[in-house]
C-alpha cells in the first residue's frame, strides 16, 4: 500500500473523472428536455431572505404574481437569496448577467445600493425596489414606506396603554422596542418614531431598546423581554423576525402587552397583542409591476408612501383589538391616526 498521502492524488483524479462523467451524463439528458418559449415580459422577484414565513416577502411575491397573472404577456420567477447579505450582490449580478429578466423586483432598504452596484456592471438591467430609497439612477425605481410614521402609530398606542389602567399596565411609564439587529432604518427612523409617538401620547414615557443580535433566536428574544418586563416595561414592540415569538411568550406569561409590526398579529396571542400596524406591500408591488409591464414606471425616481394613500395602516377593526383595548384609548388612537393623515 502507498503512503497515506501519496495515494490521494490519483484517488481524487479518479473521483473528479467519475464525477464529471456522472454530470455529463445528466447534462445530455437535461439538454434534450429543455426548450425555449416565446419572449413575454419576464419578471424576477429577488427575495433577500426566505419567502415562506415572512409576510413582507409573501406580499411581495403575491403582488408581483397578481400583476403578471392579469397580463398574459408576463411571467414571474421567484428567487430566494437567503439571509446572508454578503451574497445578495452576487446573486443579483448572476440574475442580471443571465439577461433573462426584463425587470428585477426586490424589497429591502439595503437593496438600492446593491442594485446600483450591479447596475454599474449591467446597465441594461431594470430594477423596481420596494421598501428602499434611491433617486437618480435611470435603471432603478424605488418605493419606500414611511417607517417613522408607522413606528409613531405603534409608539402612540404604546404610550396610551402604559399610562392607562388596563389590567396588564403598571404604574411606570416604560415601553420597550426589541430589534433583531441594529440597522440604519431601525436606529434612524423606527426607534425615534416609536419614541416620538409615545411621547405625543404621554410626555414622560421612556423607551427601552434591546437587540437580539439575529432574526431567529426566540429564546433570547424571550429572555430580553423578561428582563425588560422585570424592569417595569409593560408594552413591547418586537421587530425581530422569528425572535418575536419569544417576546410574545414572555409577555403572555407576565400578562403584559405586545404590539405587532407590518402584519395583522392580533390572533397570534389573544389578550397579549394589543395593537397592530400593517403595510400593504402586496398592493404597492402590484401597482409597481403593472406600471412596469405597461411601460409607465418612472425609473430613476424614488417615492415615499404612507398612511395617506393607504400603504401603511393601523388595524382598528379587528375584533380582538376591540375586545382588549378600552373604548377611550381606541378613540384617542383613532384621533391620532386622523391627525397623522393631515
Amino acid at each position: 500500500m502507498k503512503g497515506p498521502f501519496s495515494g490521494s492524488p490519483n484517488h481524487s483524479k479518479i473521483t473528479m473523472i467519475s464525477l464529471s462523467l456522472v454530470m455529463i451524463l445528466i447534462m445530455t439528458f437535461v439538454s434534450c428536455a429543455k426548450e425555449q418559449e416565446s419572449q413575454p415580459y419576464r419578471i424576477a422577484v429577488f427575495v433577500p431572505g426566505i419567502v415562506s414565513g415572512s409576510p413582507i416577502y409573501e406580499m411581495l411575491v403575491a403582488g408581483a404574481q397578481q400583476a403578471a397573472d392579469e397580463h398574459e404577456q408576463a411571467v414571474v420567477q421567484v428567487i430566494e437569496g437567503g439571509s446572508n447579505q454578503g451574497l445578495w450582490e452576487e446573486s443579483i449580478s448572476t440574475l442580471a448577467a443571465s439577461q433573462e429578466h426584463d425587470l428585477i423586483v426586490t424589497s429591502n432598504p439595503a437593496m438600492p445600493a446593491i442594485a446600483a452596484a450591479v447596475s454599474a456592471k449591467f446597465p441594461e438591467q431594470r430594477f423596481a425596489i420596494m421598501d428602499g430609497a434611491l433617486e437618480g439612477n435611470e435603471a432603478i425605481y424605488t418605493l419606500r414606506y414611511d417607517q417613522q410614521q408607522q413606528a409613531m402609530l405603534a409608539g402612540h398606542l404604546a404610550g396610551l396603554i402604559t399610562a392607562s389602567s388596563m389590567s396588564g399596565a403598571n404604574d411606570q411609564l416604560k415601553i420597550g422596542l426589541i430589534a433583531g439587529q441594529e440597522y440604519p432604518d431601525m436606529t434612524d427612523l423606527i426607534l425615534p418614531g416609536f419614541t416620538a409617538g409615545a411621547q405625543t401620547a404621554h410626555a414622560s414615557v421612556t423607551v427601552e431598546f434591546r437587540v437580539v443580535g439575529n432574526w431567529y433566536d426566540a429564546a433570547k428574544g424571550s429572555e430580553l423581554a423578561r428582563a425588560m418586563i422585570a424592569d417595569g416595561v409593560d408594552v413591547i414592540l418586537p421587530i425581530a423576525g422569528g425572535a418575536n415569538q419569544g417576546v410574545l411568550t414572555a409577555a403572555a406569561d407576565a400578562g403584559t402587552y405586545v404590539l405587532w409590526y407590518d402584519t395583522n398579529g392580533y390572533a397570534l396571542q389573544k389578550g397579549t397583542v394589543a395593537g397592530s400596524t400593517a403595510i400593504r406591500q402586496d398592493k404597492a408591488t402590484y401597482e409597481t409591476v403593472v406600471k412596469a409591464i405597461e411601460g409607465t414606471l418612472p425609473f430613476g425616481s424614488a417615492e415615499t408612501v404612507g398612511l395617506e394613500r393607504g400603504y401603511i395602516t393601523f388595524i382598528e377593526d379587528d375584533e380582538l383589538y376591540l375586545e382588549l383595548v378600552p373604548q377611550e384609548i381606541r378613540d384617542q388612537q383613532h384621533a391620532f391616526i386622523e391627525s397623522m393623515m393631515q
Binding site: 426566505i50 431567529y216 433566536d217 426566540a218 429564546a219 422569528g242 415569538q245 419569544g246
Partner: peptide, 12 residues
C-alpha cells in the same frame, strides 16, 4: 416552552 417552532430555534 415557546409554544411554537421557530426556524433556527437551536440558535447555536
Amino acid at each position: 416552552s415557546l409554544h411554537a417552532f421557530v426556524p433556527n430555534i437551536s440558535s447555536g
